[in-house]
Design a protein around this nucleic acid. Structure first.
Length: 348
DNA sequence: CATCCGTGGGG
DNA sequence: TCCCCAAGGAT
């Protein structure tokens, strides 16, 4: 019997990873010393529910502006929020600053899952990933890729999210003591490139002979998921208030939707079901059009209304130069609204 | 355990 | 156009 025939699942997977690992800016090649924990942590937080392609330019921008966790800890939160604009899930950016300051305060990153887990923004997944990838700890790393790979490998038929316990236990049984970081990344690479959600490429998979899901003939049925609810529609207004080449911007409350981000003033659509239609300025505005934007749990149709006024504006805010609007760090919804307003004034 | 929290790309 | 999905976490 050959070594290949008796190789274990982790051995086969690590062998595949040695030959096929993706090259990524935050990653060390297989078998080489681990990368800077700061870069591992930063990339893992950015990658939460976010694609590799979307993360790459942000990772470059952040490591360029703030090369170390100490540099990030010293940065104004406002600058970090603005740099994060467009990446989504903005509580990540707020927690990023908090965690960086805690790490700088204690003189470096903790190197165990238990201690990492205490940092804001690090849950079970991220704490395990950093411990394994940056510190070589044996940790059970389960993200959406691993969930899918493991559910197929063991043909786990229980639907998510209830199946998470069984999936974690099964992943634990195949996680090796050595090279746990490479193993975790190998599972994620396998899920991202071969064991994909639709149309898994079993013919190229190093684990196909071991895969109970493939043996069923329909590996793509795993993991089984509960049906999803339809997204409701909400409507609202936002206001492009101009005065002398500047536009009125506000900073949103720290918690809630787009929390802590700079924004155009609006009529409260994110708090109530629909917006009130109530402008912060008196007088009739000029309707510029509608921006449609999909959030996780509802779709928004946001009407953009222009006001030109010399009157003071109620509430806190700042007059932002319109020719520097790109630097305001607006989240995508308001960047779209601003684009609409600018296109309209270009025609005027 | 359920809900909230963004965004862009692919089928 | 619409739906699904992606290196989840906090409450």
């Amino acid at each position: 019997m050959t070594a290949t025939a008796t190789a274990t699942i982790p051995d086969k997977l690590l062998g595949w990873y040695d030959a096929h690992a993706r090259t990524l800016p935050w990653r060390a090649p297989p078998g080489t010393p681990p990368p800077d924990p700061y870069r591992v942590w930063l990339s893992e937080v950015m990658l939460q529910q976010t694609t590799v392609a979307a993360v790459k330019p942000y990772f470059a921008k952040f490591t360029n502006s703030w090369p170390t966790v100490e540099a990030l800890a010293a940065a104004p939160e406002e600058a970090v929020m603005a740099a994060w604009a467009g990446l989504g899930y903005y509580s990540r950016a707020r927690n990023l600053v908090k965690a960086a300051r805690a790490v700088a305060q204690r003189g470096g990153f903790p190197d165990t899952v238990e201690e990492l887990r205490k940092l804001p923004g690090l849950g079970a997944y991220t704490a395990a990933a950093v411990a394994a990838i940056a510190f070589g700890r044996r940790a059970v790393v389960v993200d959406a890729n691993v969930e899918r790979v493991t559910a197929r490998l063991f043909a786990i038929a229980e639907p998510l999210p209830a199946a998470r316990k069984a999936i974690r236990a099964a992943t634990d049984t195949i996680t090796p003591d050595a090279r746990a970081g490479d193993f975790a990344q190998a599972m994620m690479d396998l899920g991202a490139t071969l064991c994909t959600a639709r149309d898994p490429k079993c013919l190229l998979c190093p684990l196909s002979a071991d895969c109970a899901g493939r043996a069923t003939g329909e590996p793509a049925q795993f993991p089984v998921k509960a049906p999803k609810q339809a997204k409701p529609m909400r409507t609202g207004q936002c206001y492009w208030i101009e005065r002398a080449g500047a536009v009125w911007l506000v900073t949103r409350p720290p918690a809630g939707m787009l929390g802590g981000m700079r924004a155009l003033p609006d009529d409260g659509w994110s708090v109530h079901g629909n917006g009130s239609g109530q402008s912060p300025v008196t007088g009739a505005g000029e309707p510029l059009g509608v921006v449609r934007h999909g959030f996780t749990h509802f779709t928004l149709e946001l009407s953009v209304v222009r006001h030109q006024t010399a009157a003071p504006i109620a509430g806190e805010g700042t007059w932002w130069p319109i020719d520097r609007i790109e630097d305001a760090g607006l989240p995508t919804l308001f960047a779209k609204a601003a684009r609409l307003a600018l296109a309209q004034s270009g025609e005027a």
